[in-house]
């Protein structure tokens, strides 16, 4: 599978002032693969995603996406190929723009002609009725908003989607719908995903391989099967796994 990597990260380093938040991180993601990054807050997982998306311009190391080495400032073509979905659907949609405006904007930026057809298709892909195009975000539920955010990412027909905790602000029943949608889209369009999450079960469900991060370092890379078999090698990954299984009362 690794014959054609969509994303290669080599010796990535990120510092904010004195704090060194990502340290010598390397990994690669095959085309069509879904790759998970897990870790606790402050582990640097979201920062990695922001570097890949070009939102964070201060970093060192090499990032190769779809075969080309990425500069600090990305060009327009990059954003057609790589899109990101953010954690909080309440904060990531413009409150004064209709769904239609939100979806039309990336198309206008990239000068794409058949906007109408693309928007209709994106709405259909995420399972929203066409009538929703003229609603404002406050007229949508959390799950519907996240569908709009996914539609906005899809409207440019990217090849890579960067997902930053896409369901952690949602109820479990809505989470299931959004995860199913993401799975189906990936299969249909052969998308490459990087999914950042603190929820191990979600990552195991969505991804083939995952990376555990702690204090800015990659602690362990493993397959979803290793995770499901509860046999990670490092102590920290084990600890995360145990903690995610709920509360245990010491019988002492």
């Amino acid at each position: 599978m690794n014959t054609n990597p969509a994303i290669i990260v080599e010796k990535l380093n990120v510092s904010f002032g004195d704090s060194h938040v990502v340290k010598d991180l390397s990994f690669s993601v095959a085309s069509g693969e879904s790759y998970g990054i897990v870790g606790e807050s402050g582990s640097g997982k979201s920062t990695v995603l922001r570097v890949l998306a070009g939102l964070n311009r201060e970093w060192g190391g090499d990032v190769t996406i779809l075969g080309s080495k990425q500069p600090k400032v990305r060009d327009k073509a990059f954003y057609r190929a790589v899109q990101m979905v953010f954690q909080d659907p309440y904060g990531s949609l413009h409150p004064k723009k209709t769904v239609d405006d939100t979806l039309a904007e990336p198309l206008a930026i990239h000068g794409i002609e058949d906007a109408e057809a693309r928007i209709e298709r994106a709405m259909k892909d995420v399972g929203l009725p066409n009538s929703f195009r003229f609603r404002f975000p406050h007229q949508l539920s959390g799950g519907q908003r996240q569908r709009v955010a996914i539609a906005r990412a899809l409207v440019l027909e990217p090849r890579i989607l960067l997902l930053d905790e896409p369901t952690s602000a949602l109820d479990v029943s809505i989470q299931a719908e959004v995860l199913n949608l993401l799975q189906a889209l990936r299969k249909e369009r052969n998308l490459t995903y990087i999914l950042v999450s603190h929820d191990l079960a979600v990552v195991a469900h969505m991804c083939e391989r995952l990376l555990v991060m702690q204090f800015g370092r990659g602690v362990e890379e493993m397959t979803a099967e290793t995770l499901a078999a509860r046999s990670p090698q490092t102590a920290y990954a084990q600890q995360l796994l145990v903690a995610s299984e709920g509360f245990r009362r010491q019988t002492a």
Binding site: S173, A176, L179, N180, Q183, A201, A204, H205, L227
Partner: peptide, 20 residues
């Protein structure tokens, strides 16, 4: 049951999660 079933589960991997 619906709430329980729509959670992804490490032990039982499914292609599609049940929706409520």
């Amino acid at each position: 049951l619906g709430l329980l079933d729509c959670l992804p589960d490490l032990d039982h991997r499914k292609d599609k999660l049940a929706t409520l």
